[in-house]
Design a binder for these strands. Structure first.
Lengths: 155, 155
DNA sequence: TGGTAATATTAGCCTTATCTAACTTTTGTC
DNA sequence: GACAAAAGTTAGATAAGGCTAATATTACCA
């Protein structure tokens, strides 16, 4: 159905959703600034997104997402959040590294893997055993097993 | 230091390492067949890899990896194995899906995330609590991730 | 040793994604 | 309401990565 979008266009969609806020609208210059690309690149991307019916786009005007665009943006953002949490909270990567990795990986995993990762995170959050075993995934604490493991000096 | 390689060239390096076997050599046609790509595409890729000193390449001859090439191939393959294990054994994705996702994600994570994932898998393998916690991620087979995880050897 | 099959490369084209420079449209201010 | 600044687009490049068709090289074998 939804012809898989390139990583680049997914990034544009994600940025537009993030910038659109409550008004639902944003402009090319803001997208360019937010993404660190040139304005002509944004024009090209918007045409690509418009041709796929993911944004409402008229030259020299503001941009907003279609319903499909919003859905797609939500899906990508969800992957991003989940991955970032996994890298940071479970693996213990610092927030910046976790976020950078999430930015790239979000384009590489599908819904099934994402759903399973969600289940996994939920499990960890509710698993007292994991805490006793050395995990500290308490929603407040955000530590990870590495800290515990290091003490036990496993080479 | 090691100027980050494109996902495409990493795939070529990985395929070459896999095909080279004990002789250490392989040919463009085999690479093309293995990767499902045309032979001219292989020629172009080999030039790119040769210019980065990752393969020994002379027109109309066999190809082999340099030491840097082998190291890079090993690093990529390691990511692939670890990710595939994680997706399959911990998240419960079937082997094919796990492998496909690993193929894409392997180009998107760095060494630090990979190292942390290795530690995490090791932790899970040695965590009896997790078993008792009844962690079940494979909705169809209802496999316990511990049982799956235990039977596999090294990362 | 010559000829053909297999292998590899070149040539030329396409797509995606990016850029800068130049031009056009819109907006905001006096 | 005119005009300059801001915003957006067009034009023209570059680079990576892929393809097919045509050409070149190598290898095998009778």
């Amino acid at each position: 159905m939804t012809e898989k979008l390139s990583a680049s266009l997914e990034d544009y969609i994600e940025a537009i959703a993030s910038l659109a806020g409550s008004s639902g609208e944003t402009r090319a210059a803001d997208i360019a600034d937010a993404m660190g690309v040139s304005r002509p690149s944004v024009t090209v991307a918007l045409r690509g997104l418009a041709s796929r019916k993911l944004v409402f786009y008229k030259p020299y005007s503001t941009v907003s997402l279609t319903e499909n665009g919003r859905n797609l943006a939500a899906a990508v953002s969800r992957k991003h959040r989940i991955l970032s949490r996994f890298f940071n909270e479970i693996l213990g990567a610092d927030e910046q590294l976790a976020d950078e990795a999430a930015c790239r990986v979000e384009h590489a995993i599908g819904e099934e893997i994402t759903d399973r990762l969600v289940e996994f995170l939920a499990f960890i959050d509710n698993c007292p055993m994991a805490v006793e075993g050395g995990f500290e995934f308490n929603s407040t604490k955000r530590q990870n097993f590495r800290n515990e493991g290091a003490k036990n000096g496993k080479n």
